[in-house]
Design a protein around this nucleic acid. Structure first.
Lengths: 183, 183
DNA sequence: GTCTATATGGTGATAGAC
DNA sequence: GTCTATCACCATATAGAC
């Protein structure tokens, strides 16, 4: 698997490429897989459809490019999680509510694709989740607790991505985690 | 809002109507909004596209019919939850993992539609969730805990609907809930 | 590297036969 | 009550001009 390397593009087409992926993700987040057509992606990125198809020869390649970026973002996120001063648990639940970050957008976009029965996207999400779980389980030394916290994070993500966001959710979760002596 | 009333169909077309809604839901669950075309729904239900369009004049009406059924199923579920011998919390998390029930299918289908930016579906899901929360909060007398348990349920749902199912998840959650003295 | 055609097939919806 | 035929539109993808 060739990994996506931000600084190493062979020419200066990186910004157009990334703008296209950004637009693709945003359309997936806002309107689901149905709204993310090639026309819409090209328009949102400010290029023509032909321009898009120069960078990505098919919609499939667009998905592939998106997932490659996701893997790198996930690696960076896990590193941040391990090094977080507030500890990995607080970092994890805090970043599980949608802050509008590029990584949040990439995750929600990937889950939209996964729900259209794309096995690559589902595998990518599973791998990202495994990375988080590893850190949680290592830090807590308690699989049931780690799994439960991960489910809470999944729930926060799901609610945000379905427009069910509850502003008190994070405070409530923190309160319960304190009772469990993990915060 | 005219409610869906199983026993009161004005003629014997109820079974065809329900078969169409069943097929619509199943296609949404399996392949997302993109796969649930009118052609596919009609074929899966064993009627022609014209036959479908006799019962539902548009795709919008198909969604509407689906959400009406969902409301009634949700009312029934809340009643079961209140009366559950094992208590509402255990009932809630147990039924949050996809058992393949008609209600599970309806919920996942509705969330697929909600994620394509359909406000009716999002509102329906929010209402269903409010019903569960009310029972949880009433029973526990503890909003943070009720909200957290609800998030765990959302996480279980999300994982199932994205193909991330972990067979130990439920056991792990139960273990943690015992530590919190709710099971 | 980006754009304009254009081919091909799918998708929602209508009209009207049976 | 269900079906066939048909329409206008939108989607992905190709070929090739600039």
């Amino acid at each position: 698997m060739t990994s996506y390397t931000p600084g190493m593009a062979s020419s200066d087409d990186r910004s157009t490429r990334d703008r296209l992926l950004d637009a693709f993700e945003q359309l997936l987040v806002d309107g689901g897989g149905r709204a993310a057509t090639l026309d819409a992606v090209a328009a949102a990125a400010g290029v023509s459809k032909g321009g898009l198809l120069y960078h990505f020869h098919s919609k499939d390649e667009l998905v592939e490019g998106m997932l490659e970026r996701l893997y790198d973002q996930a690696d960076a996120d896990v590193a941040l999680m391990r090094a977080a001063p507030e500890g990995p648990v607080d970092f994890y639940i805090e970043t599980s509510v949608d802050s509008g970050s590029a990584f949040d957008r990439a995750l929600i976009a990937a889950s939209r694709v996964a729900q259209e029965n794309d096995s690559r996207a589902a595998a990518a999400l599973a791998k990202v989740r495994d990375g988080w779980f590893e850190v949680l389980a290592e830090h807590l030394g308690d699989d049931p607790l780690a799994r439960t916290i991960q489910l809470i994070g999944d729930g926060l993500y799901f609610d945000d991505s379905t427009g069910l966001r509850d502003p008190d959710a994070l405070a409530h979760v923190r309160e319960v985690l304190r009772r469990l002596d993990v915060l």
